[in-house]
């Protein structure tokens, strides 16, 4: 399928263009989600895409599925209700870094703990973009933001470690530059019967890039190209991982899935209902 066919098939073309700034990494990441869905041949009617609030959360509006743009931080809680009510649906949640790990951090760890079959994709651009460049839980220490005018003293989250520690059964990271890897991770996440967490490192030249003298979008992509290394490489040659950003598939360890476990309880009463 060529690019324009995919666009016509999966995007609400009449709703484009999008709101994202020139050079933003979110469009590329959104496209990896679309391509993963296409690759797996999922029926569009069975796909639900849920988001919270922020730049990333505008993505579902452009995507031709059942789409739900919720309140800030709460996407996973809405998605949990959808998945519980109709477990046949493929539920995908797209969140930003602040959305998923600050205001929505509690929902993230509990959705992961339950291992409910939701594929969660975080577009992490290390900043609150929608509100104009405030520091988020993934802004590196010493970086600048409008609310960290003298340098950020917070210590950032490693979102993948957070999700894995909380119980996610599939975890991986890629970047807007490493789009094919991102797509592959989303495909595997969608195939995992359980809570999948994929972090997509995005770029925000407008706020994070400008505040921190990271250059333009090209420079920021080059940074990902030069500074990311796949976990598989590091496992063979640990020295190659020094001072680098790890990408790749970090964890894949199936466990009982939440809605299936609940269905076991419901089925216990099946005979009773027949009477």
């Amino acid at each position: 399928m060529n690019c324009s066919d995919i666009t016509k098939k999966y995007y609400r073309v009449q709703k484009l263009t999008h709101i994202w700034c020139p050079g933003c990494g979110h469009g590329t990441l959104m496209n990896t989600v679309i391509r993963a869905i296409d690759k797996l041949g999922l029926n569009k009617d069975d796909v639900v895409v849920v988001s919270g609030i922020g730049c990333s959360s505008r993505a579902p509006g452009y995507m031709d599925f059942n789409t739900l743009h919720t309140t800030h931080g709460r996407a996973l809680a809405f998605a949990t209700g959808i998945k519980m009510a109709n477990p046949k649906l493929h539920v995908i949640v797209i969140m930003g870094d602040g959305d998923s790990s600050a205001i929505g951090g509690n929902h993230l760890i509990h959705a992961a703990r339950r291992n409910i079959d939701i594929t969660t994709i975080v577009f992490n651009n290390n900043i609150y973009g929608m509100t104009g460049g405030q520091y988020s839980p993934t802004t590196p220490t010493a970086d600048f933001a409008t609310t960290a005018p003298f340098g950020n003293i917070d210590v950032p989250f490693d979102l993948c470690k957070l999700a894995q520690g909380a119980g996610a059964t599939f975890v991986g990271r890629a970047t807007a530059y490493h789009a094919p890897l991102m797509q592959k991770l989303i495909e595997k996440g969608l195939q995992n019967k359980g809570f999948s967490f994929i972090e997509g490192l995005s770029l925000c030249p407008t706020y994070y890039g400008r505040k921190n003298k990271k250059g333009n979008a090209f420079n920021m992509h080059s940074y990902f190209k030069d500074n990311c290394v796949d976990l598989k490489v590091v496992q063979k040659n640990p020295e190659k991982g020094e001072n680098k950003i790890l990408i790749g598939e970090f964890f894949n360890g199936p466990k009982p899935e939440y809605t299936e476990s609940y269905q076991v309880i419901v089925d216990k009463f099946k005979e009773l209902r027949r009477d």
Binding site: V48, V50, L68, T70, T71, R74, A77, F78, A79, T80, G81, I82, K83, M84, A85, N86, L89, N106, H107, H110, Y262, V266
Partner: peptide, 22 residues
């Protein structure tokens, strides 16, 4: 279906999701 959520914010979010799913 019944689910005990992590807090009340999640609880109402979940029922809105559940209602939307029918």
């Amino acid at each position: 279906k019944f689910i005990q959520m992590e807090d009340e914010i999640a609880s109402i979010a979940a029922i809105i999701g559940g209602s939307l799913a029918g």
